[in-house]
Nucleic acid binder design. Structure first.
Length: 430
RNA sequence: GGAGAGAUGGGUGAGUGGCUGAAACCAGCAGUUUGCUAAACUGCCGUACCCGCAAGGGUACCGCGGGUUCGAAUCCCGCUCUCUCCGCCA
């Protein structure tokens, strides 16, 4: 959430940022916010003055009672009746105005970083770099949704959508045998790499309350994308970003504890309502998937250096997995609501002949921190909002898909990247 | 699920109607002392918002929301959470 004083003092910058995002009615929204803010301050001043007078009278009455001047005290009481009524009305107005401000503010997205390219959709994202050579597959090479029909126990599918459909529904596959072991190997590999890079592993709850959903920006507005356990008012997490970042909600971080580097492996749940159709076959889009997420809490002046560092970490994973990838800088129209700058990493999925997003690395600057009340006293000064960042390192199913597709051989087997062999215990799926 | 107890500042913990934004201690910060460290001593040490060029002033906050009262951390009502015991249980 943007801070009102920031909007007040950087109106043009905010407007330009909102336009870059193609945010509708940027001018009128900002004008309305600033006008409500002025009303709020005027009303508060008026109410504060009434309350100050009431407090003063109350003190006088205390003195009068002590010295036995009953009549004078009663006279003073009479004055407070009007004051009380007035300040009550002002208080109600104030609450109303604050609610209006809040209602508007939660609809305003973060301001994009100056390096964010112009653009409306995913087609306008900027390709920052490409790495690796796309494999030349043999004739008859298959997409992963064909490959996974084999190699399971007793010749069954090693990733079984029908079985998952029986247990839960579409989009909840069952991983069996070597597919399950390969996925577990990837999780351990990703966690180990993060640990080596100095991240502290955490295992958070995978259900969250409403306050947590608000803190990272999923709520209000995106409740339709999360599974919800009505009886307990808990949401299944769409990403570990939510519980891990919320670890630091309402926290005044000691400067000596910065930077905070956390990594968490969790399942993630997405309802993906209305987004099913072409291009979402197999592992490309699921309701439940596994992900290793890195989260950082940083001093403002460091956050963009850290964003690059996180991008390098993710790229390093893809490189040792021998997966061709490209890095995109998302354009204003394609960025997430809360982000100031996002890099997407996409791997080349040779069996499908298309790029698959496997990571999204973002700097939220103070947008989440403001909602979270996540602050530190830097250099002994007043509390300052910190910057939050996170990134997938990495999301599992599409990595799995790319490994299976890119490493299939003419002999009908699948080669396992060398770096994973110690983790999964086999070097080929045959 | 049943019964009981509790929720105060970074921490421990006083405080049952006005002198309490809140004692004391610990931690922290700045000094004095010191060969260094430690100890001791002195001072500072919550957050948000508002007015003001500033100095400074005002308001709110003792889990949350209401109420009583001229005045509430303190009294009343509702809620949430935590802890203890019992039951159930991976």
């Amino acid at each position: 959430m943007l801070q009102i004083p920031f909007i007040r003092e950087n109106k043009d910058l905010v407007l330009a940022g909102l336009r870059k995002r193609h945010f509708a009615d940027a001018e009128s929204t900002v004008e309305q916010l600033l006008s409500l803010d002025q009303q709020r301050r005027d009303t508060q001043k008026e109410q504060d003055d009434k309350l100050a007078r009431q407090n003063a009278i109350a003190k006088e009455i205390g003195q009068l009672m002590k010295t036995g001047q009953k009549e004078a005290a009663d006279a003073a009481k009479a004055e407070t009746a009007t004051l009380k009524e007035q300040s009550k009305v002002l208080g109600e107005q104030l609450t109303g105005i604050e609610q209006q401000v809040q209602a508007i503010l939660v609809t305003v997205p973060n301001i994009p970083h100056s390096s964010v390219p112009e653009g409306r959709s995913a087609d306008d994202n900027e390709v920052v770099l490409e790495w690796g050579d796309k494999p030349n597959l043999h004739a008859g090479a298959e997409p992963h949704w064909e490959l996974i029909k084999r190699f399971g126990p007793g010749g069954s599918p090693m990733i079984d959508f029908d079985l998952g459909n029986k247990i839960s529904g579409a989009g909840f596959p069952v991983y069996k045998g070597r597919a399950a072991r390969l996925q577990r190997a990837l999780i351990n590999f990703f966690l180990d790499k993060a640990l080596a890079a100095g991240y502290v592993e955490v295992q958070p709850p995978i259900v969250i309350n409403e306050d947590s959903g608000f803190g990272t920006g999923q709520l209000p507005d995106k409740e339709g994308q999360m599974y919800y356990a009505d009886a307990d008012k808990l949401y299944l997490i769409p990403t570990a970003e939510v519980p891990v970042t919320n670890l630091y909600r309402d926290v005044m971080v000691a400067e000596s504890d910065l930077p905070i580097k956390n990594v968490a492996y969790t399942p993630c749940f997405r309802r993906e309502a209305g987004s099913w159709g072409a291009h979402v076959r197999g592992l490309n889009r699921l309701h439940q998937f596994d992900k290793v997420e890195i989260v950082r809490i940083e001093k403002p002046e460091n956050s963009y250096t850290v964003l690059e560092e996180m991008s390098q970490h993710v790229q390093g994973l893809l490189q040792v997995l021998e997966l061709p990838y490209r890095v995109l800088r998302l354009c204003g129209g394609d960025m997430g609501f809360t982000s100031a700058l996002t890099y997407d990493m996409e791997v080349w999925s040779a069996g499908q002949g298309r790029w698959l997003e496997v990571s999204s690395v973002s700097n939220f600057e103070t947008y989440q921190a403001n909602r979270l009340k996540l602050r530190a006293k830097l250099d002994g000064s007043k509390p300052t909002l910190l910057h939050t960042l996170n990134g997938s390192a990495l999301a599992l199913p599409r990595i799995l898909a790319a490994i299976l597709e890119n490493n299939q051989t003419a002999e009908g087997t699948i080669r396992i990247p060398a770096v994973l062999v110690p983790y999964c215990g086999f070097d080929v799926i045959d």
